[in-house]
Amino acid sequence: MKKNLHILQISALFLVPVLFSSCTPGVAPKPNPKQTSSIKGEHVNPYKKGTYAHFTASSNYPKTYGIYRNEALLSSSNGSNAKVIVDRSLQRAILLNNGEVAMDYPVSTGNKNFPTPAGEYEVLEKTKAKKRSNLYGKIYDAEGTVVNSNADSSKDTIPEGGRFEGALMSSWMRITWDGIGMHRGKVPRYPASHGCIRTYYKAVDTVYDKVAIGTPVVVR
């Protein structure tokens, strides 16, 4: 009996450090924005709901059509403090208010044949009306049937009696004098335009209202 008790006492001596070592505080690792549960394999967002960090750490960012809005910042955003940054790799843009993110929204930039050029620009012109492109659009035949849905008016032939109709570009915000701008348009989650920055319809009116002539626009 004494021998067994002695063995138990020795075993306890080895177990104590192990138990205490498992509770020893250490430096907490930084949260992984895309971390997953080790048990269920599910995505775990480590940030507080409603924050910009939580929005960008979601499992479907940046492909989501979701829009992040900081209503307090948006309410005070205007031409004197606004700036737009377009990220071609993410196919998203952010509206800044004095350097803070007021809105993050989907865009579609130029495709591989007509890439949107990177650079630092500014808003040169604003037109809310239904502006149409004078270069890209559709060609119709004499019966009104679309014969070319991705036409270039400088290269493609219009059939006799037919017509060219430029692509609609409402809420136009020009950033270059050779035809590049931000405007409302179809926004697939990949580069698809002829160089312009198509802006998601749920965000474009806000962007239009918050920028002014001279507002900086950075394309990266």
Rank of each mutant, 00 (worst) to 15 (best):
R88I: 15
P117V: 09
L5G: 02
D87A: 10
G137Y: 00
V107M: 04
M1E: 13
G137S: 05
R69N: 09
G99F: 07
R184F: 11
V204Y: 04
L73Y: 09
G26F: 08
D104I: 00
S77I: 01
L95H: 01
Y201S: 14
N4W: 13
H43M: 13
G41M: 01
L5W: 01
V86R: 00
P62A: 05
V187F: 00
E125S: 13
A12H: 06
S76N: 07
I175R: 00
V146K: 04
G41L: 01
P188C: 10
Y200G: 02
T157L: 09
S38P: 06
V27N: 10
S59M: 04
P46E: 06
R174A: 12
N113S: 13
R184Q: 14
C196G: 06
G66M: 04
R198H: 05
V27W: 07
K3D: 13
T176S: 09
I213W: 11
P159H: 08
A57I: 06
S80D: 12
R198M: 07
M173V: 05
A167Q: 05
E120T: 15
N134S: 14
V84I: 15
S193K: 03
R88N: 13
Y190A: 15
N111K: 08
L74G: 03
R132H: 15
D152S: 05
